[in-house]
């Protein structure tokens, strides 16, 4: 396991969270501590151990392809911060 080499700016950017200088300083130290603590997992011999994704895995959980009533446009847009022409408005996305 790598050491706690957390590149906070990069990770916060991936997470799309703007951090204040104050937060950066605090998180760097707090998360450094947490990562050092987490590093103890290096001690564990996990060779040949299967990962657990689900405690009680089953397979083929699905539904038949039968449409069900959804949300009305009003309900769909009820919590929207900004709406125009029954669509959600965001500042123009540049590709």
């Amino acid at each position: 396991m790598p050491g706690p080499d957390l590149k906070l700016d990069h990770v916060a950017s991936l997470a799309r969270i703007a951090l204040t200088a104050d937060e950066k300083a605090r998180f760097a130290s707090q998360l450094g501590e947490v990562l050092s603590y987490i590093a103890q997992l290096n001690e564990v011999d996990v060779s040949g151990v299967e990962p657990t994704a689900h405690a009680f895995p089953v397979v083929n959980v699905w539904a038949a392809d039968v449409p069900q009533p959804g949300l009305s446009v009003e309900d769909a847009l009820r919590n929207a911060p900004q709406v125009r022409d029954n669509m959600f408005v965001v500042p123009r996305v540049v590709e």
Binding site: M1, P2, I38, L41, V44, V46, V49, T52, A55
Partner: peptide, 15 residues
Amino acid sequence: DAYYLRAQKVRTLIR
């Protein structure tokens, strides 16, 4: 692999 996958394996041991 170092974090998430390893943690899932340790999870198997804990279980």
